[in-house]
Simulated assay, not measured.
Amino acid sequence: MIRLLIADDQGLVRGALSALLSLESDIDVVAEVARGDEVVEAARASQPDVAMLDIEMPGMDGIAAAAALRAALPTCRVLIVTTFGRPGYLTRAMRAGASGFVVKDTPAAQLADAVRRIAQGLRVVDPVLAADSLAQGESPLTERETDVLSAALTGGSIADIAEMLHLSEGTVRNHLSSAIGKTGARNRADAARLAQESGWL
């Protein structure tokens, strides 16, 4: 039996995934959680072979949860299943140690097959996303520009961002200016939106 943990903040989706995959004779859903920051504790308690993680969850996103889970339980393999099929997310998820990345509208039989393949040590990636990711390439943003744009999503002032990241206001302005140029955006809000839509944040 493949022991499976499911993490998704939408109860209806989580329940549907659990019900569908439990119908498979070789898959046993051993844990379900609604928050990213509950993944590691639930995995320690239930010892799954595969963890199926959504990206957008409270507490900790699925990509950060994947990295934390790989560090805490290296034998547990991670499959990201998300509504948000953004190429940048795919790149970040694989860097975080995920073995697979598929979108939620994947048919149930294919999803069960993805769980099996990942449990066997194989990789499973949505082919359209893989092609888009290759076409888009790496994020052009530096780590600090990514931090500054992520902070800008809250809509705070330059001073707010500087205080949040422990940087000077001039440094924040420089990083924002560079990020705006790299994304081809009109302003910082537009740059943050474009970077988020690309999956770079």
Score class of each variant (00 low, 15 high):
Leu90Gln: 02
Ala151Asn: 03
Ser99Thr: 09
Pro87Val: 03
Asp9Arg: 03
Leu194Glu: 10
Arg92Met: 11
Phe84Cys: 08
Gly156Asn: 09
Arg3Trp: 07
Pro140Tyr: 08
Arg116Lys: 08
Tyr89His: 12
Leu153Tyr: 06
Asp28Glu: 13
Ala71Asp: 15
Ala98Pro: 07
Ala109Phe: 15
Ala130Gly: 08
Leu23Met: 11
Met57Val: 05
Ile118Gln: 04
Arg186Met: 12
Ser157Glu: 07
Ser22Lys: 13
Leu122Ile: 13
Ala131Leu: 15
Glu24Leu: 05
Ala43Val: 04
Asp147Tyr: 05
Ser178Asp: 06
Thr75Val: 15
Glu143Phe: 13
Leu53Ser: 02
Tyr89Pro: 03
Ala108Gly: 11
Cys76Ala: 14
Ala65Cys: 11
Val172Asn: 00
Asp61Ile: 02
Pro58Leu: 06
Ile63Gly: 00
Ser168Leu: 08
Met60Lys: 07
Pro58Met: 05
Arg144Leu: 12
Leu23Glu: 15
Thr106Ala: 04
Val128Ala: 13
Ser177Ala: 15
Thr82Gly: 00
Glu169Ile: 11
Thr183Lys: 00
Val148Ile: 09
Ser18Glu: 12
Ala131Ser: 15
Leu23Trp: 09
Glu163Thr: 14
Val148Pro: 00
Gly170Arg: 09
Val40Gly: 00
Asn174Pro: 08
Asn174Gly: 13
Leu167Asp: 07
Ile161Pro: 00
Ala34Ile: 08
Ser99Leu: 12
Gly59Gln: 08
Leu122Val: 14
Ala7Glu: 02
Ser133Trp: 02
Ala108Tyr: 11
Ile6Gln: 01
Ser198Asp: 11
Arg77Ala: 03
Gly121Met: 04
Cys76Gly: 11
Phe101Thr: 00
Ala45Glu: 12
Leu176Thr: 07
Val172Met: 03
Asp37Trp: 08
Phe84Ser: 10
Asp126Met: 04
Arg35Thr: 04
Trp200Gly: 01
Leu4Val: 09
Asp147Phe: 03
Asn174Gln: 15
Thr91Tyr: 04
Ile6Trp: 01
Ser178Val: 05
Val81Pro: 00
Leu4Arg: 03
Asp160Gln: 11
Leu111Ala: 02
Arg92Gln: 12
Lys182His: 09
Asp9Trp: 06
Leu90Ile: 06
Gly137Arg: 11
Thr183Asn: 04
Asp8Ala: 02
Asp147Val: 05
Pro74Lys: 05
Gly88Cys: 04
Leu134Pro: 10
Ala135Arg: 15
Ala19Arg: 12
Met60Asp: 07
Leu5Cys: 09
Ala64Arg: 07
Arg44Gln: 13
Leu194Val: 14
Ile63Val: 11
Trp200Tyr: 07
Ala189Tyr: 10
Ile63Thr: 04
Ile158Thr: 06
Gly155Lys: 06
Val39Cys: 03
Glu38Met: 12
Gln47Arg: 15
Asn174Ser: 14
Thr83His: 15
Met52Ile: 07
Glu169His: 10
Ala191Arg: 01
Ser150Trp: 13
Gly62Ala: 08
Thr171Cys: 09
Arg14Asn: 05
Ala114Phe: 03
His166Asn: 14
Ala65Asn: 02
Leu149Val: 11
Arg35Tyr: 08
Ala93Phe: 04
Asp26Arg: 10
Leu141His: 02
Gly36Arg: 01
Asp54Thr: 04
Asp160Ile: 07
Glu56Lys: 13
Glu56Met: 14
Ala151Lys: 03
Asp126Phe: 04
Val172Trp: 00
Ala31His: 06
